[in-house]
């Protein structure tokens, strides 16, 4: 198997607060291989975005990486600071933000923003960068790209702006793209197009993608593998069909059961009792145990088993797989 583009090992992010340290990301590990799209799914505050920000080195202080390792293309990057990290951003790791209406600088022409990004990372002339800017806009499906490079962000619709954002994130050909809820702020009709675009571009270039979302539809549509996060921890990691159709972790199971499906008439949606714990009050043992229908004494004391690919961090997974289970 090829070396993964991104490899996260036991990553923990801590934020010191007046009431002690909280851990928005707690011992998370996963890999993303070239051309693969990993969906990171979870509720608000589950640590999905925080993990993405940690990878690209944009945690806002006082949040910081407390332990663990991040490897990108065989290089360890979690200890890089300042200038060394800046060189990676945009060049090796691209990022797409949630709201295209606010993520473009309103006072600069989009062509200038593209040229500026490319010339920061690639040794090319102004002319060459301008040519590539037009090509980049054509690639993300902006009609009349040659004239639209001179437009300002406010002259585009939300969906078009997100295409511009994607062009900006990909223009220096990074090997990893972190897409943080790229469709949440968009019209439903535009969401599918943007996901399809992201998927096509990354497949063509062999870019690894971390697709952060809480939308199960997006997960099913676009991803190859899924990481389910709960209260800062990884609950389950596996191939998308497996996680969606045969979830092992009771939380994932509950999540799937509460996703509305058009085919399933009017039956009342399932609801997981309770709410995700606040980060300063995560229960001992498995974070999900107070809400879990399968919880037993063992769930309340030691931390649950570590997640491996295709496995859940659970003492009592729904699909027992005796051979692989760690004691």
């Amino acid at each position: 198997m090829a070396e993964p583009v991104l490899s996260i090992r036991d990553l923990s992010v801590e934020i010191p607060t007046r009431h002690g340290i909280v851990k928005p990301v707690d011992g998370v590990s996963y890999d993303i291989r070239a051309g693969e799209i990993l969906g990171v799914v979870g509720e608000s505050g589950a640590g999905k975005s925080m993990a993405g920000n940690a990878v690209i080195g944009l945690l806002s202080p006082p949040a910081h990486i407390a332990s663990g390792e991040i490897w990108l293309n065989g290089k360890r990057i979690d200890q890089l600071r300042g200038e060394a990290m800046r060189r990676l951003r945009g060049k090796e790791i691209g990022m797409v933000f949630q709201d295209p209406l606010t993520s473009l600088n309103p006072l600069l022409r989009i062509g200038d923003q593209l040229v500026e990004t490319m010339r920061t990372h690639l040794k090319i002339s102004e002319k060459e960068a301008e040519k590539r800017a037009v090509a980049a806009l054509e690639e993300v499906g902006i009609p009349g790209a040659a004239s639209r490079v001179n437009s300002y962000p406010h002259e585009f619709s939300g969906g078009m702006r997100q295409r511009v954002v994607i062009a900006l994130a990909l223009c220096a050909e990074p090997s990893l793209v972190i897409a943080d809820e790229p469709t949440t702020a968009l019209d439903v009709s535009v969401q599918a197009q943007i996901i399809a675009l992201l998927k096509r571009l990354c497949r063509e270039r062999g870019t690894a993608v971390m697709l952060i979302t809480h939308d199960m539809g997006v997960i099913a549509e676009a991803t190859d593998r899924v990481a389910v996060m709960y209260a800062g921890r990884l609950a389950e990691l596996g191939a998308v069909e497996q996680v969606l159709t045969r979830p092992q972790h009771p939380y994932t199971h509950g999540l799937m059961a509460s996703t509305p499906l058009a085919s399933e008439g009017k039956a009342r949606l399932h609801q997981i009792p309770g709410a995700m714990p606040r980060l300063d009050a995560v229960p001992d043992g498995c974070a999900f145990n107070p809400r879990c229908p399968r919880a037993t004494e063992v769930c309340r004391t030691p931390p649950p088993p570590r997640v491996k690919d295709g496995m859940a961090a659970c003492w009592h997974p729904l699909v027992e797989d005796v051979e692989e289970k760690v004691s």
């Binding site: 800046r86 951003r89 990022m95 920061t120």
Partner: peptide, 23 residues
């Protein structure tokens, strides 16, 4: 957000502070 995005694209601090923020 657009300042965060400018940083996420790896622009130099000078460009972020003066070209993007100051304007």
């Amino acid at each position: 957000d657009y300042i965060r995005f400018a940083r996420a694209r790896g622009l130099r601090d000078r460009a972020v502070n003066f070209r993007h923020a100051l304007k």
